[in-house]
Design a protein around this nucleic acid. Sequence first.
RNA 1: CGGGGCGUAGCUCAGCCUGGUGGAGCGCCGCGUUUGGGACGCGGAGGUCGCCGGUUCAAGUCCGGCCGCCCCGACCA
Length: 561
Amino acid sequence: MRRSALFLPTERQPPADAEALSHKLMVRAGLVRQLGAGLWSWLPAGWRVHQKVVQIIREEIDAIGGQELLLPVMHPRELWRKTGRDQIEELFTLEDRKGAEMVLAMTHEEAVTFHVGAAVKSYRDLPKTLYHFQVKERDEARPRAGILRTREFIMKDSYSFDRDEAGLDVQYEAHRGAYAKIYDRTGLEWFECRSDVGMMGGTVAHEYMAPCPAGEDDVVLARGYASNLEVASADPQPVELPGDTEAAEVTTPGATTVEALTASLGLPAGALLKAYPVIAEDDGRLVLVMVRGDHRVNPVKLQNALRSPFRPAGTEEIAAQVGPAGYIGPHAPLTAVETLYDAAIEAGPYVVGANRADTHLRGFVVPEGATRADVRLVEPGDTIGGEPVRIVTAIEIGNIFKLGTRYSEPLGATYLDADGKPQKIVMGSYGIGPARIAAAAVEQFADEKGISWPVAIAPWTVNLVSLGKGGTPERAAADALYEQLRAAGVEVLYDDRDTGNGEKFAEAELLGCPLRITLGKRSLDSGLLEAQIRRELQDVEGGIPLEGAVGAVLGILPTLA
RNA sequence: CGGGGCGUAGCUCAGCCUGGUGGAGCGCCGCGUUUGGGACGCGGAGGUCGCCGGUUCAAGUCCGGCCGCCCCGACCA
């Protein structure tokens, strides 16, 4: 591609409203432009990156037997009513001219299950894996960070259909393998994490995370362990408990916070227990959740432990059922108030609220038979296998779910087994967001000069910069080299503009093609081209000879990251 | 959805408090000089100041409403 012909609107300054690095750089480099909140256009260079990611995904999903198709974005609402997902807030809804209710699909479980359910009759028709790359529409409450969280985006989603759980297991593992290959091929740093199955239901879920500063999730990492902070578990840091042997009341006026208590009692925060009263929303019961003073409740883990959504109890509910806010603690008889002790709590003795104003209790020992569950947030300093965990921010770049019969049941997708009995089709779903992969790559590899693409997803692998003006011998030589590289199948962006050299270099660094080769008057004198690898801005030692340059370039390409 | 902020040239912003013929830098066009790191000079084009209404002799500026966008939080099968 000749730069002079390319639609690549670059900017020297990032847009005023950009915050995330990938947002700033992708706009500056002319890859994407914003049309509205959470609505982004992919310009030619950016689209090349997107399509490279798409092609990698396509090849690997094809390799595990996936069959590509295309499902509509707009669906009859009735289909979503059947699965109950028409109630999701983020779902865009509209009516057609006849007043028929429609929705814009956020994912395609309903649509694909509709077709498979109608077409699959026999166990002989299974298993199948179908996938597509299609636009997803989500009315996000808050789109953010440029391309990272948008209201409309392309997703690769595959769906597996099996006779039974065993078949699903096979497909699930096949996808795990394919995903590992896909992310490795893109050149990203990534982790496979255990994740919350969420309201999707099902039994098993993994998500794929790319560490980057603009990420929205926190991932807990240790040797052989990677988990979303939402569901992560680790060993707590030990805490030295006081040697209280008997329960004793202490007067603690105004000490309603852990900080105030630790200061006045001279004890570490971990020697206190915090009481967190919540109301389980399915039956309205109050549960007193106890965690160590230096720990925090993990809402996702707590919801799973309670088997119900919950909300924090109000001051009046606390006063009526437990005690005065700021001084609440466990009630002595286990039956008095339902109490859940976090797993990190040892026997004791601890300091707890006495359920009376200005009073705490020392020497509290957790009663035998108390209910326990791991409901705390993993903290920096926690360990796994004796090794301290790392907690990194990351962006989710894919996920896989075992759906089971979550969709086949309401949509009546069944088949006849060998005995002629109807059986529900067992499903899995597997998503990847190519745009997020592109943005994560920008975040992970950018430096102060700009983007540095992994070669596998770079818009062009080579950026040929001609320093001469039109009509000069060096320009003629660059033109010839461009044609030779193209003929050799090299993806080359050729900067053939009559503009300042500094401008060309700066733009090449901003755009981030893996290899830049420069041809100026000097090259004709010396017979050498300058070649620079974008990653770390490393010059190729001694340059490359003008004579036989194509072969030299072809030799360098496989060495690039 | 709660809180905060912003909307003036293609981009980044000043001007608004204190109303009186709209500016800067970069970019763009022309000419010339430069020519291996966003170079310089001269000349030029480019604006319903987000929209609607109000106050006023006069509104980018003051007042009201609306729309749009960003950030923090909530939310994110």
